[in-house]
Design a protein around this nucleic acid. Structure first.
Length: 305
DNA sequence: ATCCAGGAACTGT
DNA sequence: ACAGTTCATGGA
């Protein structure tokens, strides 16, 4: 991570293949989103670092992302952690040149990488958030998933109001361990999702499940295997978390409905592709399955607007 | 109404 | 290992 510290603000160098506006478009795909706000060319997000609430105003120019702190200057160690968070959030460490090179010879990805050039994987550095968001979204449409997330965040998350706007944090597992199952069901979570989410909060609170612990694993397959051992986490959720939390470029949620619909549309099919067809297509994307999936998901948003 | 949604566990073979 | 069934709820 290459960043500069100016105390009252920080700058994070952006890679060549980076377009902040494209990232903002993805971040703005739901008007129900409560974990960040887009104001023109800026992105506002509340973070909690070392126990402190830090409001970040994030902008971008040709060479770097700038982060201002409207609530006042945080300490140096907090500034460094914020830089690291943003670097992870926008997947800035990834070198996309080979992805674009591969895509230039791929009939599916060529138009997408041209259209969304500079879009990075929008990640979820927080493991609890990634797991819970994925579980929430299982087997329901994205609109309802955002409704559930909004309720969840506004019931159990911390918030801060500044300049007439309210900013929310995703709930911590420490908070969710003590949530009553009936209360969560009352927010229209199914009984199973309620159990899964509270169980995960418990295992994170006890320390038996942590992101650091998973980062110690030898390889990504072991991380995925461990994730799939968690009740409520099947192959789809594990791949989603591998993509968005562990930055695994090979993660590929082969059974994902959104992926199927995007391919159906991109290929002009009158039916969804089969799993076998997907496995064949995947071989052309070796090493970049996660980005291919993400760009295909992005293409679905164009069809709704 | 009816189908389906960025699935997973459970059950029976 | 594999296929069928159940869970559950709102969007379109």
């Amino acid at each position: 991570m290459n960043w500069f510290d100016y105390e009252s603000y920080i700058e994070i160098c952006t890679p060549l293949e980076f377009n902040f506006r494209e990232c903002l478009k993805f971040l703005g795909r739901s008007d129900q989103e409560v974990l960040h706000q887009i104001k023109g060319d800026n992105l506002n997000k509340l973070l909690k670092v070392a126990g402190e609430l830090i409001l970040c105003k994030i902008g971008c120019d040709q060479t770097s992302i700038q982060v201002d702190f409207p609530l006042g200057t945080p300490t140096k160690s907090i500034r460094e952690k914020i830089a690291a968070y943003i670097c992870e959030w926008f997947d800035l460490e990834r070198d996309l040149s080979r992805f674009y090179e591969m895509a230039s010879n791929d009939k599916i990805l060529q138009p997408l990488t041209h259209k969304y050039y500079g879009l990075r994987m929008i990640c979820m550095p927080d493991l609890f958030e990634a797991l819970v968001w994925a579980i929430m979204g299982q087997q329901i449409n994205l609109t309802f998933a955002y409704t559930l997330k909004k309720r969840f965040v506004e019931h159990y998350g911390e918030c801060l109001t500044f300049g007439g706007e309210t900013y929310w944090l995703f709930p911590s597992f420490e908070r969710i361990v003590s949530v009553n199952e009936d209360d969560l069901r009352g927010l229209q979570f199914t009984g199973r999702k309620t159990e899964y989410i509270i169980d995960i909060a418990k295992s994170m609170a006890s320390g038996e499940l942590t992101k650091d612990m998973l980062l110690q694993k030898e390889d990504t397959q072991q991380v995925k295997k461990f994730l799939m051992g968690i009740r409520g986490v099947g192959a789809w959720t594990a791949d989603y978390v591998m993509m968005k939390c562990f930055h695994d470029p090979n993660a590929f949620p082969v059974a994902d409905v959104g992926l199927h619909n995007a391919l159906k549309s991109q290929l002009g099919l009158n039916r969804k592709p089969t799993i076998e067809e997907l496995k064949e297509i995947e071989t052309h994307w070796e090493g970049w399955q996660a980005y291919a999936t993400f760009y295909l998901w992005r293409s679905l948003y164009d069809e709704t607007v």
